[in-house]
């Protein structure tokens, strides 16, 4: 079995379970984002992969070997910490060469590799600078170069971009993704920014309460969320209750909706993205509601509709500006293609 495999990994701190029975398979060369709210166990999971914490139960395999008990320094990995943890007593070049020096690589070869990596991170000639005199983005790149110096089997980053301002962060996301694709290195990034995850990942792993809720490609996570937590956490969504009667007809907010793939007698939630909500004239089988608020954001118009005690948000582009005013009665049409039936 190649790649990284987590098998029923659990981590307990005393009686508190930070990571609960997590299994995950990461094929070689993929880019995985661990995404979830604060305190959901992302860092803990990453620290176990790095060997900085031992799992309470379960095992971790890398390239077919059980590495659960292998100490960190023998795992041949590269990790970027949230605080970056650049060594303050070493220059940029010495920081990058640290892992080579530890392995007894010759001075000449160290210098060659450092120059290569500095070129890769677009900081040529920075080898003799002091790390304390770099800007945030430059320090970021140095930390990445340091982690990649030995061409590790696994590249781990814990919220690597959270200290950067929004603009630089977007640029670094793209850069990081391009770098990973060029090197073909298996990469796991922790983040709690869903845009960041969607930008970079092959696979997004959504976690909550120490458990994996869904692991899938970004578009699938967005289009086919597995449960209401994922639907709500990734982007904006409308969660609308539905019920199915004995004859298999689905009813949403008092109106029958055709074409939903639901079983008889079921009850649950529909997740409908705001851009998939169509506003029409009331009647003709559409759900009827009242416009309660309109927000024009320039690039998009958000219309808030009250229907059956539920607030539903519709987003339209300025080209399709809905001709509605607050207090007006409107119809809402749900497309069965884009309405996702959630178990809970």
């Amino acid at each position: 079995m190649s790649g990284l495999n987590l098998n029923n990994v659990t981590k307990q701190f005393g009686t508190f379970t930070a990571v609960n029975d997590v299994s995950l398979s990461v094929p070689d060369g993929t880019f995985v984002c661990l995404l979830g709210p604060s305190g959901c166990g992302k860092t803990t999971l990453m620290r176990m992969i790095a060997g900085l914490d031992l799992p309470t139960h379960g095992s971790i395999n890398l390239a077919g070997h059980d590495i659960t008990e292998v100490p960190t320094h023998k795992r041949e990995l590269g990790m970027v910490f949230q605080s970056l943890a650049l060594f303050p007593h070493l220059t940029v070049g010495e920081n990058i060469a640290y892992s080579l020096r530890i392995r007894g690589v010759g001075k000449e070869e160290q210098k060659k590799r450092v120059d290569e990596l500095l070129a890769m991170i677009h900081l040529p000639g920075f080898a003799d600078r002091s790390v304390s005199k770099l800007s945030g983005g430059q320090r970021q790149r140095v930390a990445i170069a340091r982690a990649l110096a030995i061409s590790p089997k696994l590249f781990l980053l814990d919220e690597p971009l959270s200290a950067l301002d929004a603009k630089l962060r977007e640029a670094m996301q793209v850069e990081l993704r391009q770098l990973q694709q060029r090197l073909g290195i298996t990469t796991i990034v922790v983040t709690h920014d869903q845009r960041e995850a969607m930008t970079m990942a092959d696979t997004v792993v959504v976690m909550n309460g120490g458990e994996i809720r869904q692991a899938a490609p970004p578009v699938e996570i967005y289009r086919r969320p597995a449960d209401s937590f994922v639907a709500d956490f990734i982007g904006q969504t409308n969660l609308i209750p539905f019920s199915v009667d004995g004859a298999g007809r689905a009813t949403v907010l008092g109106e029958a909706v055709e074409g939903l793939s639901v079983s008889q007698g079921a009850k649950g939630m529909l997740s409908v993205r705001p851009e998939d909500v169509q506003l029409t004239a009331p009647g003709h089988g559409a759900i009827t509601g009242t416009v309660s608020f309109v927000r024009d954001l320039g690039g998009a118009i958000e219309t808030f509709v009250e229907a059956g005690g539920q607030q539903i948000v519709a987003v339209s582009s300025p080209r399709n500006r809905p001709e509605v005013t607050v207090g007006q009665s409107v119809g809402i049409r749900l497309d069965p293609e884009t309405s996702v039936v959630l178990a809970k």
Partner: peptide, 16 residues
């Protein structure tokens, strides 16, 4: 995290 970083870079705890 400085010592942890050193360990991920291949240094044993004593070496770190």
């Amino acid at each position: 995290t400085l010592t942890e970083a050193a360990r991920t870079l291949g240094a044993s705890p004593v070496k770190a």
